[in-house]
Write a protein that binds this DNA or RNA. Structure first.
Lengths: 211, 211
DNA sequence: GCTATAATCGAACCAGCATTTGATTATTTT
DNA sequence: AAAATAATCAAATGCTGGTTCGATTATAGC
C-alpha cells in the first residue's frame, strides 16, 4: 500500500457519488470522464486508476444505488406489523429514498439503457457482462420483495386478489418516475409524496365496498 | 416540386418511424444517423435533406409520439360515461398505445434527457428551443388531461378526495414504465395489462368501506 | 533512507460520428 | 426538351471524448 487514501486522495466512493451527480444532470452519454473528474478535482486520466472504463464506472454507480435501495427495503421486512402496514412502509421508504437521492434514483431509470448497450472491448468483456447480469439479478430480487409482499398480503386475506406482478410494476414505475419529476423545495416534501402514493396503492389493495 | 414522394423516395414519416425504432433499441446517443439512414436505405447525408439536425429528428420523433397519445386520449373525453368509466378508458387507451408502439413509448421515457440536453448551434437554435418548449407545454397538457379528469371525478363525488397532481404522476409513471418492460408475446396482452392497471387506480379512487 | 506501489497528471492517440460540400440523378412543370 | 428543384450520395471535414502511455509525486513498510 502507498499514498494514504485520505487527504488529497479521492476514494472510489467519492468518484461514484460525483459520477451519480453529474449523470443525473447530463445523462450517461452527455457526461464526459472529464466532467466527473472535475467534480472531484482530478483529471480524466486519473479515473482510470480506479475504474477500468466509463462503463464500469456507470455500473458501479448503479450497483451502489440499487444495493442502497435493497438495504432500505430489507430493513422494513423485519417489522411485525400487518402486511398492509409493512407494504406501506416499503413504499414510503423507497420513495423517500428516491427523493433524498435523486441522482441515483434518476440513474436507475435513465441509465439502464446505457448499461444494456455497453459493449466493453476485449479482456474486460467477460467480467463486465458477469457483473451486469448480476446487477439485473439484483434488480429482479428488488422487484420480488414488493411482489412477494403483495402475495403474502393476498394469502393472508388482507389484500384483494390482484395480479401481483403487474401491480408491482405499476408501483415501481410510479416510484421510479418520482426521481424524474421530483424537485427539492417543491410543493410537497418527499415524505408527503411517499405518503400519498403509499395510500394510493394500499387503498387499491385493501378490500373495498364494491367487492 | 420534383421527384415523386412515392416509390424510391422515402417520406419524412418513414424516417421518423425508423428513427423511433432504432432509438428504442439503442438510445439517442448510441444511435448514429447512419443507423437510422440504413433502416430506410439511405445514407446519413440524405437525412439532412429532411431534418436540420439529429436533434430536430429526435424532436420530431417525440412530437409525433406525444401528439398520437394526446389524440387517443382526447377521443375518450367525448364519451358520456361516468367520470370513473371515462378515466378507465383513458388509462387503458394510454397503456395499450404504449404497448402497441413501444418504440415511441420508450422514447418518451428515455430520450427526454437527450432533448433537454440538446444544444443546437447557431441559427437553428431559436427554432429548436421554441419547438422544444412547445413540446414540453404539450406534455404538460397531456398530463393535465388526466389530472383534470381526476379532479372532475372528485368534484362530482365519484372519487374520494386525493391529491390529483400526485396521483396523476403515479399513474403516468406506471404507464410509462410499461413501455420499458413490456415485451410482445409475454404472459399478458397489452389489453390485459391495461385492464389490470386501470382497475388498480380506479379501485384506489373510488370510495371504499374504510372511509 | 530505500523500495515498491498507489495516485495522479499532461499529452498524445485515435476512432467514431455529426455535419458540410459539391456533384449527380430523378421528376415535375411549362 | 429545358429549366427548376427534390432527393440522393460519396467523400471530406472537424471535433469531441474515451482511452493509453510515460513520467512524476506521495506514502507506507522495511
Amino acid at each position: 500500500m502507498a499514498r494514504k487514501p485520505a487527504d488529497q486522495s479521492v476514494s472510489k466512493d467519492d468518484i461514484i457519488i460525483a459520477a451519480a451527480d453529474v449523470l443525473k444532470r447530463n445523462g450517461y452519454d452527455a457526461t464526459t470522464m472529464k466532467d466527473i473528474a472535475a467534480q472531484v478535482n482530478l483529471t480524466a486520466a486519473s479515473l482510470y486508476h480506479h475504474f477500468k472504463s466509463k462503463d464500469f464506472l456507470l455500473l458501479a454507480v448503479l450497483e451502489i444505488g440499487l444495493e442502497h435501495a435493497i438495504q432500505l427495503i430489507e430493513q422494513t421486512l423485519h417489522s411485525n406489523q400487518s402486511y398492509a402496514e409493512k407494504l406501506r412502509e416499503m413504499i414510503e421508504t423507497h420513495i423517500i429514498g428516491v427523493t433524498e437521492n435523486t441522482a441515483f434514483g434518476a440513474a436507475m431509470v435513465f441509465e439502464m439503457k446505457a448499461l444494456i448497450n455497453a459493449r466493453p472491448n476485449g479482456d474486460k468483456e467477460d467480467e463486465f457482462i458477469q457483473r451486469r447480469d448480476a446487477f439485473f439479478a439484483r434488480r429482479d430480487y428488488f422487484e420480488s420483495l414488493f411482489r412477494r409482499s403483495i402475495h403474502a398480503g393476498i394469502e393472508a386475506g388482507e389484500f384483494r386478489s390482484v395480479d401481483a406482478a403487474i401491480v408491482t410494476r405499476a408501483m415501481l414505475g410510479a416510484h421510479n418516475w418520482v426521481g424524474v419529476w421530483y424537485k427539492d423545495g417543491g410543493r410537497l416534501s418527499g415524505e408527503a409524496i411517499a405518503a400519498i402514493m403509499a395510500d394510493t396503492f394500499l387503498t387499491s389493495l385493501k378490500y373495498s365496498a364494491e367487492d
